[in-house]
Design a protein around this nucleic acid. Sequence first.
DNA 1: TTTCAAAATGCAAGCGCTTAAATTCGCGTT
DNA 2: AACGCGAATTTAAGCGCTTGCATTTTGAAA
Lengths: 342, 342
Amino acid sequence: MRARPTLEDVAGLAGVSTATVSRVLNEPERVSAKTRSRVEAAVAHFDYTPHFGGRALASNRTNTVGAVIPTMENAIFARGLQALQEALAEDGVTLVVATSNYDPEREAQQIRTLLGRGVDGFVLIGEARDPALYTMLERRGVPFVLVWSWRPDCPWPCVGFDNRAAARAMAERVFELGHRRIAMIAGVTRGNDRAAARVDGVRDALAARGLHLDESNLIESPYRLEAGADAARRLLAAAPTPWQNRPTAIVCGNDVLAAGALTAIRDLGLKAPADVSVTGFDDIDLAIVLDPSLTTVHVPHRRMGQAAARLLLRLRAREDDTTNVVFETALVERGSLAAAGK
Amino acid sequence: MRARPTLEDVAGLAGVSTATVSRVLNEPERVSAKTRSRVEAAVAHFDYTPHFGGRALASNRTNTVGAVIPTMENAIFARGLQALQEALAEDGVTLVVATSNYDPEREAQQIRTLLGRGVDGFVLIGEARDPALYTMLERRGVPFVLVWSWRPDCPWPCVGFDNRAAARAMAERVFELGHRRIAMIAGVTRGNDRAAARVDGVRDALAARGLHLDESNLIESPYRLEAGADAARRLLAAAPTPWQNRPTAIVCGNDVLAAGALTAIRDLGLKAPADVSVTGFDDIDLAIVLDPSLTTVHVPHRRMGQAAARLLLRLRAREDDTTNVVFETALVERGSLAAAGK
DNA sequence: TTTCAAAATGCAAGCGCTTAAATTCGCGTT
DNA sequence: AACGCGAATTTAAGCGCTTGCATTTTGAAA
C-alpha cells in the first residue's frame, strides 16, 4: 500500500539527507545545482508534497491568513476577497475565509477558531469590535489589517475609505439637486461602523443645511433586496402623495438596498426618478443593469483587497513602512437620481 | 515573554499527564468528571488552544476541506459556499476556498496546493477535468464530491442537477410560446461541463422540433455583464429588423449574461419582451430586480451546498450509504419571456 | 601539491500533539 | 483482609519537518 511519501523517501532516492531536501524546497539557492536537480527528480518521482502539519510544527508558520467577513453573498466582499486571495497566493500564502453574518459575537468566535487553526495573519472588516479581541491578537503577535473602513487616526493598520465623507458627499449632491424631503434606508448599524458612518455622513450634510433626518425618515434594514423593498414601501406608505410630504429622494446604505427600493417603487406604480430619486453605495455590477441605472458611490473593492494583501504581507515580514492606505471614492451619477420636481 | 502555552503547561497546572489533557480535548467522556473539570480550569487559565500543526502531525487529520470554485464573484458560488461552510462548521470542519477562474490548469494547480495544505476532503465544481486528477485523489485516499452537475451514471460522488434537461425544458417553453428564431448566448464551454450541457439541452429541444442552432445564432462568452451585452449586440446587429430574421428570443447560459443582454437591448432602443424575449439560468437575486424581471431556471444553490457538505462528511466517515443527490430545478416565468409577436 | 576559506551537506534535536500499551487506582466480592 | 477487574491514568514512541551547528567538499590561491 502506497503510504504518503515523506521527506525521508525523497532523500533516500536522491541519496542525500532530509536536511538537503528540505533546503531544496525552502531555500533552493543554498543547494548546488547538481544536487538540486537530483532532489527535484526524486520529488517528481514520488509526486511528493510536504506534509502540512509537519511543516507547521517544525517552523511554527502556516503561511495562512484568515479573513472574517460578514457574508460571501454580498458582491463587494466576494470581489475584495478574490483580489486579496490572488495577491496573497503570489507570495505562497493561502487564504481561509470565515463568515460572521454581521454578528459581532460570531465574528469573535470565528477569529478564535481561525487562531486555533494556526493562521498567522488576519484580515478583518471594519473597526468596531470588542477591545479584548484586539489585545488578544496583539498578545499573540498575530498581525492583522482592517479593511473597508478608514477614518483619521485609526489606531490599527487599515486599508479603506472614508465612508462618512462619501455618504456626506452623496447627500450634498442630492440636496443640491433640489431635494428637501430626503429619507434614508441604512444598513444595520449595530456592530457595523461602515453602516453607521454612512448614516452619520448623511446626517452631517443635512444638518449643515438645516435639515434633520428624523426617525420616520430613517429605516435600518439588513442588506437584502426584500428588506430594502420593504423599507421603501414603508417610507412611501407613510406619506403616499407629494402633498403629504412623500420623500422625493431615498438615500440607501448600499446598492442592494437601493435595488430593493427601486423594485418597490416600480411595484407601487411610481416612477424613479420622476416621482422618487434613489441612490446607492458601492457600485456593484447590479448598479448598471437596473432601470433606471443607479447613482451610487464607486468603491474600488478589488484595489482594496490587493492593498490589504500587500500591507499584511509587510506586517508579517515585520517591515516598518506599514502606513495605512486610504482610497478615494467617486460619486457616479446615473439615471436614478434627478432634480427634484416641484 | 509569554510563549504560546502547550499541552504540557496545561498538564502541569492540572497535575495530570499530557495524554489526559489530550483526551479531555478529544474524547471528554473517557475522563473522570473530577479530572476533567480540573483540566478544563487549567485550559481556561492559560487560554489554551491546541497547536494546529502538532495536532495535524500526530493525528494525520486537519479537519479541513478544500473547495475549488471558478470565482467568488459569481453569486451562485458565493451562495453555495456560504451554505457549505455553515454545514461543515457544525461538524467542526473548516472550509478553505481557492479559485480557478474557469481555467482547468489553474484548477489542477489549486487542488495540488490544497493537498499540500493537508485538506482531507474536496468539493469540486462540475465533472470535466483531467482523469489524472481523479486518480491522484483516489490514490491519496482523499474523498471528494462534485457539485453543480449531475447526469445519469456519473461515476463520482456528486450533488447537482441535470443542466441539460433544465436547459431543454427552457428551450421547449420558448418554442411553445411561438418563437422560431431562437439564439443563444452560452457560457464558455471549454472545461465547463455545465455550460456545455446547457447548450446541448437547448440543441436537444430545438432539434426535436426541426430547428437548428447554427453558428450565427450561438455565441459563447464569459459569464460577465459586458460580455453578455456584447454578444446580444452582435446577435441583433447581424439582423437588426424582424424581417431580416432578427431573433425573437435569446436564451442565455446564465442570469448574468441575460442581464447584460437586457441592458444591450434597452440601449439599442428595443423593448424586451415585446421585440426580443430573454431567458436566464440560475435565478440569482438579480433576476427579480431587472426590468423586465427575468424568466429563468431556479436552482437551489443553498440546498446543494448543504447536501454537498453532508455527503462529504459521510465520505470522510467512510460510511457507505453515499448515494448521489440530484435536485430538481424549476422554470420560473417572469416578465422577460413573452409569446412571439407575429 | 598543499592550504584554507567558503560553500555544500549531514547530523540530530526538537516542534506539540496523539495513541497504543502498560500501569495504577478504586471498589465490590469473597 | 486479600483479590480481581474494569476504569482511569501515565508512559513513551513517534508523526514529518526545520534548522543550528558540525562536518565534509570544493576550488582558487599560494
